[in-house]
Design a protein around this nucleic acid. Structure first.
Lengths: 232, 232
DNA sequence: TTGCTACTGTTATAGTATTGGCAGCTGGTA
DNA sequence: TACCAGCTGCCAATACTATAACAGTAGCAA
């Protein structure tokens, strides 16, 4: 099915989904590659290449069927597969994530929260009781949960992750800031605020330097989530 | 100074900083490119190229001076420049970010929080009083604040951002999930959980598919924060 | 029904990022 | 002091991604 999929393309697919969702809500039936390209500031041939690459075809003179394409993308990304996840660490970030409405839409359901702070245990967060952390491995095994969202302090992240990996957790969505080292075949997705901040900081200093000196050429790498607007 | 800097390289620099910080804490004085490469699962020539690219030299037979390199990287990324930011939206995510300890280390200081929920106004978050949102533009102008962290609902993000841009905010760190459209020369850095989730979802389905069928080759694109471990 | 238009899908080209190889320098050692 | 080992730094080769050009097809109108 998906033999080779460019990493850059993979990052664009969710963007397509977002735009398509908007179009669908607006009642638009078809969309052309040029339209998608304009919306996401991409080249229109790139859009066509991406979509044909994941096996979706448009129709000449019409474009792509919005609803069909959206469904195809969601299917391709596996968003329909219901995924159950444990949320480890019920601090502010953990609670914020538990509240995040986008998860359910994307097939992710947080089935339990864990923490080792006695004050937090028993609290209700988003209709879920916070359970003691020590019970997580056993429950993961019993409920066959494969995904963990880590919102624990960086200092304990590695230790916690190892225990959970031992209990069969295969994918970690890691917000702790500590880069996890885990044995195969685990998937680790590090969400690193510090990294984003560093890049933002660099761009800011660039911007101010440019302001002061001359309007130099700035690369636009939209695939990383940052956008650049040159002067004038 | 920095004429051209590869986007991929830019994303690696914070990683170097992280590793170097660990090494410095461990008391290590020098580090070789091979060592850095091993730690971050990169090629060692790539590490050398990145570091020489930002104008830092190592010494043969010794490697790179950890402290000096760290300082150089931080300087290069402008982490020493003190940056003041407004946090817009004092919901759970906003409060979690206000609490995040990494910001100060990277030169970012949240000087004020804003919200338009009367219940939140006046609350203290991380030693900062939550102010009414309508005052943000005026204060931004008066205090010369250039950065805004947006943790408002997606539905109002565009509107809020436009008002703030009007008031002189140049950089938006956007957690709202809505892709902002702003005029030049604004910097927008979108932090999109939905996108991350979609990619994670895809990797998961790939993993399970691989599990079921055969150990296909999986690309490792470490620059996106996701790591892959192949079977065996 | 036939030709035209507008869009898609594919092939070719160029630019960029990563990998590999080699020369040169530097610190240790006998 | 002279040699050796190890690591850097540059240059070439390769792979990959994005842009450009072109051929093909389906709807629409006359």
């Amino acid at each position: 099915m998906s033999i080779t999929i460019s990493s850059a393309c993979l990052h664009r697919l969710p963007q397509y989904i977002k735009v398509l969702g908007r179009l669908l809500d607006a009642g638009q039936r078809n969309v052309t590659s040029a339209e998608l390209a304009r919306e996401l500031k991409l080249d229109e041939t790139l859009v066509r290449k991406d979509l044909s690459g994941i096996g979706f075809s448009g129709k000449p003179r019409v474009g792509f069927d919005v609803a069909l394409l959206l469904a195809h993308l969601e299917e391709y990304l596996g968003l329909h597969n219901s995924k159950e996840a444990f949320l480890i660490g019920a601090g502010r970030l953990g609670q914020a994530l538990a509240d995040y409405p986008g998860f359910e839409k994307y097939g992710l359901r947080i089935t339990a929260l864990f923490d080792n702070d006695p004050k937090k245990i028993g609290q209700l967060v988003h209709a879920c009781e916070v359970l003691p952390l020590v019970k997580a491995p056993e429950l993961a095994r019993r409920l066959n949960v494969r995904i963990a969202i880590l919102t624990v302090p960086a200092s304990v992240a590695q230790e916690v992750a190892e225990v959970l990996a031992e209990a069969g957790i295969l994918a970690f969505w890691n917000f702790s800031g500590h880069t996890l080292k885990l044995p195969a075949p685990t998937i680790v997705h590090n969400e690193d605020l510090a990294e984003s901040l560093a890049i933002l900081s660099h761009r800011l200093t660039q911007l101010f330097a440019v302001d002061a000196v001359e309007p130099a050429v700035l690369a636009n790498d939209s695939n990383t989530g940052t956008e650049y607007h040159e002067h004038k």
